[in-house]
């Protein structure tokens, strides 16, 4: 019994100290992002890796998500003779929920895992130690520019996902299933308000922070071996997905 209690205690302490470390890592990365000298060149580079390089997968997933929604919403709305609300339903669900969450998932899979693997490999090959030994703060050099870039790229990617998704639903609803084009856009125009766009923007911003924070932390602290890097990569993706969904719940409940 005593052994069991000590094991539980040890596990709890380990988890608490890990949580402390992960929060301190975020504070340090955010704090250093605003301390000169600014690493603008690195921010631009990571804008390309996080933003531009994720664009194709966001476009593709946004388009197909929109088309699936076109079918699904049409099927549901037809039961209430409300097919004309297709545009409204697609736009609201994309702007408020699916756009930010699915594009966050895409970025996690496309870029977050690469971040964790890259930083984990840098740890294993002593490149992070090399930066420290040159009196260069590795968090400022490797993590802070990624955080700034993801805060810029994530809302833009989400906006693109939303627009392409709405277009995908339009093609199915109007082009294939015969919903009137006018009612598709009129429904959207009357039901979508600024608050819907704003809540999607806030979500995408916070998801960008979560993904970069978690993936960089896991990579940065990966055990210096091949299995350590692969474990860090897997954990970073899983933890990012879970945290995005949990945080999404809290934001939705606040901003509804």
């Amino acid at each position: 019994m005593l052994f069991l209690l000590s094991q539980i205690g040890r596990f709890t302490l380990r988890q608490l100290s890990e949580m402390g470390r992960i929060f301190l890592f975020l504070l340090s990365a955010v704090g250093l992002a605003f301390r000169p000298p600014a690493k603008l060149r690195l921010v631009v580079y990571h804008l390309k890796t996080i933003g531009v390089d994720s664009l194709s997968v966001v476009l593709l997933s946004g388009f197909f998500t929109g088309m699936v929604m076109g079918f699904q919403f049409y099927y549901s709305l037809r039961k209430f003779n409300a097919e004309s609300w297709l545009g409204s339903a697609a736009a609201l669900s994309l702007l408020r929920e699916l756009g930010p969450v699915l594009s966050a998932f895409m970025v996690t899979g496309r870029t977050g895992s690469a971040m964790a693997a890259e930083l984990g490999t840098m740890r294993a090959t002593e490149q992070i130690d090399a930066l420290s030994s040159m009196a260069i703060n590795p968090v400022k050099y490797l993590v802070s520019p990624r955080i700034i870039a993801s805060l810029i790229a994530m809302p833009l990617l989400t906006a693109i996902f939303d627009v392409v998704g709405i277009f995908g639903a339009y093609i199915i609803g109007v082009g294939l299933l015969g919903v009137s084009s006018g009612s598709y856009f009129a429904g959207m125009d009357t039901s979508v308000v600024f608050q819907d766009v704003y809540s999607g923007f806030v979500k995408s911003l916070s998801f960008g922070l979560i993904i970069t924070w978690v993936c960089c932390y896991k990579g940065f602290n990966a055990p210096p071996m091949a299995t350590g890097v692969s474990k860090a990569t897997t954990e970073s993706v899983v933890l990012s997905f879970v945290l995005v969904l949990v945080w999404d719940y809290f934001l939705t409940s606040i901003m509804l």
Partner: peptide, 19 residues
């Protein structure tokens, strides 16, 4: 500490070049 570190040079086991 960074000021002290800038007085050091280090050759790592695997060279640790930024790839």
């Amino acid at each position: 500490l960074y000021e002290i570190r800038s007085r050091f040079g280090v050759l790592f086991q695997g060279a640790a070049l930024l790839d």
